[in-house]
C-alpha cells in the first residue's frame, strides 16, 4: 500500500483551504494568504513557508500564472523539487553495519527498530537489536517483543547499565555471529539535558570502537511535532551526527511539515515514515506522496 492510500483517512479529516485556492480563477493577496495558512497548519513553519512562497510567486510571475489551481501545482512542484534527487537509502557498507536510533521521548524509536528489523530480516539479513535503552521502564521487554515479531535477536544489559557498553557488546556479538546489521535502540532524551546528550555522543563514539561501524544515525521525529523539531534535529546532529530522519505517526492527522525545514536547513534527508503501529507500517519516504498528503486536505 502506498503512503498516499494509507493517509486517506487523515486527509478527509482536514480542512479545505487549498480547495478554496484551487476554485478561484484569479490570484490575489487572499490566494497567497491561504497558501501560507495551509503550510503553517501543516507545521512547515513561518520561515520555510515564506521562503517557499517567495519562490512560487516569482515563478508564477515569470510564467504569467493567473489561475488558483496552477499556483497550487507550482507550490507542489517547488516542494517536490527540493525533496527530489536526495539519496534516501540506508547504508550497509560495513559488516556488521550499525544503525543507531536517537530522538526525544516517545517518538517511536523502539517501534521503528522492530519494523525496520523486520524489513531487513525479510530481505535476508541477519539482524541484532541492541537494547541500549537501559533507562525507561520495560523498554527492554518492549524491544524483545518486537525482536520476536521481526525475527531478530536481542543483546541486552542490566537495568541502569551504561548504554554504550550494551551497544558495544551487541556489536561484538553480531560480529562473532557473522550478523549483518545491528539496530541500536537508545533511551529517549530531550536535548536540553546536557549530560544525556553527552551520553549519546559517547554511545556513538564507543559504537565505532568495536568490530563494526556506524553507517546510519537515524533521528526519529514524531509527525505531530511542531517547530521544536528543527531544534531537535540541530541538537541531535551536533551530539551524534544524524544521517537521516524517520518520520513516525504520519497516519494521524498531523502533516509532519517540519521535515521540510529540517531537510532544507540542515540537509538531513527523511528516509522512512511510520504509518501505524503494526509490523508492516513503516515505508520508505516518497516525496511525491508526502507532498500530496501535505496538501490534499479534504480536496
Amino acid at each position: 500500500m502506498s503512503l498516499r492510500t494509507r493517509l486517506g483517512s487523515a486527509r478527509e479529516a482536514l480542512g479545505t483551504r487549498l480547495a478554496d485556492v484551487r476554485g478561484r480563477d484569479e490570484v490575489d493577496a487572499a490566494t497567497w494568504d491561504k497558501l501560507e495558512e495551509a503550510l503553517i497548519l501543516a507545521d512547515v513553519g513561518v520561515a520555510t513557508s515564506t521562503a517557499l512562497l517567495a519562490r512560487v510567486r516569482e515563478r508564477a510571475g515569470a510564467d504569467g500564472v493567473s489561475d488558483g489551481a496552477d499556483v497550487v501545482d507550482l507550490l507542489k512542484a517547488e516542494i517536490i523539487g527540493r525533496l527530489d534527487g536526495v539519496d534516501r537509502s540506508l547504508s550497509e557498507r560495513s559488516s556488521p553495519s550499525v544503525w543507531l536510533f536517537v530522538g526525544v521521548n516517545g517518538v517511536g524509536k523502539t517501534t521503528t527498530i522492530g519494523r525496520l528489523g523486520h524489513l531487513r530480516v525479510s530481505a535476508g539479513r541477519s539482524v541484532v537489536f541492541a537494547a541500549g535503552d537501559t533507562y525507561r521502564a520495560a523498554a527492554v521487554d518492549q524491544l524483545v517483543l518486537w525482536a520476536g515479531r521481526a525475527g531478530a535477536t536481542v543483546v541486552r544489559g542490566a537495568e541502569g547499565a551504561d548504554p554504550s557498553s550494551v551497544v558495544f557488546d551487541a556489536i561484538e556479538h553480531a560480529a562473532a555471529q557473522g550478523a549483518d546489521l545491528v539496530l541500536a535502540d537508545t533511551a529517549g532524551r530531550v536535548h536540553t539535558r546536557r549530560n544525556l546528550m553527552d551520553e549519546l555522543a559517547k554511545v556513538r563514539r564507543v559504537a565505532e570502537k568495536g568490530a563494526g561501524s556506524v553507517t546510519e544515525t537515524l533521528l526519529v521525529l514524531d509527525a505531530t511535532t511542531g517547530q521544536n523539531g528543527l531544534v531537535q534535529a540541530r541538537q541531535f546532529t551536533e551530539a551524534a551526527d544524524v544521517t537521516g530522519l524517520v518520520l513516525t505517526k504520519l497516519d494521524g492527522s498531523a502533516r509532519g511539515g517540519i521535515v521540510l525545514a529540517v531537510e532544507g536547513e540542515l540537509g538531513i534527508p527523511v528516509k522512512f515514515v511510520g504509518v501505524g503501529e503494526g509490523l508492516d507500517d513503516l515505508v520508505p519516504f516518497d516525496p511525491g506522496d508526502f507532498v500530496e498528503a501535505l496538501f490534499e486536505m479534504g480536496e
Binding site: 497548519l41 511535532t225 492527522s253 498531523a254
Partner: peptide
Amino acid sequence: LDAMTGQDAVNV
C-alpha cells in the same frame, strides 16, 4: 499533551 506538539494539537 506533549508540549512539543504542533498545529494539529487542537484537532486532536
